[in-house]
Design a protein around this nucleic acid. Structure first.
Lengths: 134, 134
DNA sequence: TCTTGAGTCCGTAGCCACTACGGGGTGTAG
DNA sequence: CTACACCCCGTAGTGGCTACGGACTCAAGA
């Protein structure tokens, strides 16, 4: 069986190779043991940990939140409540982002639709940009 | 009537003072005339232009898109079609962001809801993230 | 055996769109 | 005259990567 090099870890987890080094540098993942040639050698746990990080990033958690989640995920912590709190807070963020974007989308949609009768004197999109937002 | 200084421009438009200087540096807004003491002196058009920029930023257009919009908004351009195209493309971006976020929100919601019967053996949120580490 | 090409090492710099900092000059009100 | 707000400038920091350059190492083919 081949050792898990950084390239293997990267392709297994879908995390960019340079990003793996970056995560190590900022202490998000532990520094692995090195082979005689200086190459990083990872273990299965490292693949799991990095996959966790990746999924959390995909879900929009920021690095600090992930640090907390990782700590809470340590065995012997069993503080589901704290994880829950973090997740709820994060969900709130996501939902307010969604409604912001929906507001923008409807504003844009309205302006774009007014372009229909192309003989409008002023471009409705530019007009909207030049007028105060509701 | 008092001259429009950078601070005034900033507060009128809601754009951070340092950001005004930044916009000037990257050529998004023109460099204004200077008073004898070196202070920037803006005109009414500058307030309008910066307000336009600000609203476009609020709508999520990036700097390059705004450069284009500003060029299209110049008198004598009257290319509503191009503005429309840009707006439609941008709307597409926004809508895909919305659906991404909605997917995330429902994933998170599901995991959080499973926390209810707090006697679950594994934290469902961590579980979803790929959890039991080590 | 030699060579080629892929993989890895490292530090540093770039990306976007700001924001903050430090150290100075200026303008104005009490 | 003294506060204190305002302005000047260049530079560095933010988050989360991504890219670059030059050196080393390793595995496979001629």
């Amino acid at each position: 069986m081949a050792a898990i090099t950084i390239g293997k870890l990267a392709s297994e987890t879908g995390v960019h190779l340079e990003t793996v080094r970056y995560y190590e540098r900022i202490g998000l993942i532990p520094a692995p043991r090195r082979a005689r040639n200086g190459y990083r050698h990872y273990r299965i746990e490292d693949v799991r940990r990095l996959s966790f990080v990746r999924r959390a990033r995909d879900l929009g958690f920021d690095i600090e939140e992930i640090r907390t989640l990782l700590a809470l995920a340590e065995p012997g912590q069993s503080s589901c409540d704290e994880v829950r709190k973090l997740a709820i807070a994060h969900l709130g963020d996501i939902q307010s982002k969604i409604s912001d974007l929906q507001r923008l989308a409807s504003l844009l949609t309205t302006s774009i639709e007014q372009c229909r009768g192309s003989e409008v004197p002023i471009c409705p999109v530019l007009d909207m940009l030049g007028a105060p937002l509701a």
